[in-house]
């Protein structure tokens, strides 16, 4: 009696105009629905509806590309939360970190997640490249996707590096100082690099000054790295990820033995 009523209720809901406007197929496990689950869903249709059997083996891919992408999503979400409380200004930045840690509800958790996921993403992107190399998956027709991958690897490191400065503590400014000191030795473009006098670059007008917005790591650097970290690099990385995923499909899905 009750089950019959429930069934009727379910039918009423599932056949209502609101429901059918959202969901275009039912959930029964039929081959048709398995296709539609993928094809009728904007997020899942990144996948093809069917793939070769070996491609779902964890032992083959180590899931590393997927985990890298997942961590990128985690970083985007926690990063937006942090942006609500953080001001990239010399006087405020460090205080805002303290505020996040002690006063903002779940602020510490968000900061920790963002930090550890960033470290994690650097490691997983290396492991992903390692796996792709070991399976020779960069070979024809996937050469170009490997190149896109190397760009993504570089962007991941740059994202991590620009973010490293933002807490504005001793660790961050000195790590970034050491990291950017090399730029002053850029051949031709850095004031301490080979042939610097030929080009005429000076400490205040060379590759490093361009990067830092000055001759030392100071408040202008903080603002510059903030913009790169929160706007420019994430957008660039997203664009290349779109290309990366698109190319996986266009190159015939994930590689495998003939």
């Amino acid at each position: 009696m009750l089950t019959r009523k429930l069934k009727a209720l379910k039918r009423q809901i599932v056949e209502s105009q609101v429901w059918t406007s959202m969901f275009r197929h039912d959930y029964d496990d039929t081959p048709r629905n398995r296709f539609l689950q993928i094809m009728a869903n904007v997020w899942l249709h990144l996948h093809p509806p069917k793939i070769r059997r070996h491609a779902i083996r964890v032992r083959f891919t180590w899931c590393m590309g997927g985990i890298t992408f997942l961590l990128f999503l985690v970083l985007t979400i926690t990063g937006v939360v942090l942006m609500f409380y953080y001001r990239p200004v010399g006087e405020y930045a460090y205080a805002d970190m303290k505020y996040l840690e002690f006063d903002v509800p779940f602020g510490m958790l968000m900061r920790n997640m963002h930090r550890w996921a960033a470290h994690g993403m650097v490691i997983t992107v290396w492991l992903h490249m390692f796996r792709v190399f070991m399976t020779g998956s960069y070979k024809s027709p996937r050469e170009f996707n490997w190149v896109v991958g190397v760009i993504l690897l570089t962007l991941t490191l740059l994202l991590s590096f620009t973010g490293y400065l933002l807490p504005w503590d001793q660790l961050s400014i000195w790590a970034v100082t050491v990291g950017t000191n090399m730029a002053r030795a850029t051949p031709l473009l850095g004031h301490e690099g080979p042939f610097a006098d030929v080009v005429g670059v000076t400490p205040r007008y060379d590759a490093r000054a361009f990067l830092l917005g000055g001759s030392v790591v100071g408040p202008p650097t903080l603002l510059r790295f903030y913009v790169l970290h929160c706007i420019f690099l994430p957008i660039l990385a997203s664009l290349f990820m779109i290309v990366h995923f698109w190319r996986i499909r266009k190159d015939g899905g994930i590689s495998g033995p003939l």
Partner: peptide, 17 residues
């Protein structure tokens, strides 16, 4: 030698997530 992405791959991705 192909399998459906739903449920086989999506399941893996979900567990991994």
């Amino acid at each position: 030698d192909r399998v459906h992405v739903w449920p086989f791959l999506v399941r893996n991705e979900f567990i991994c997530t």
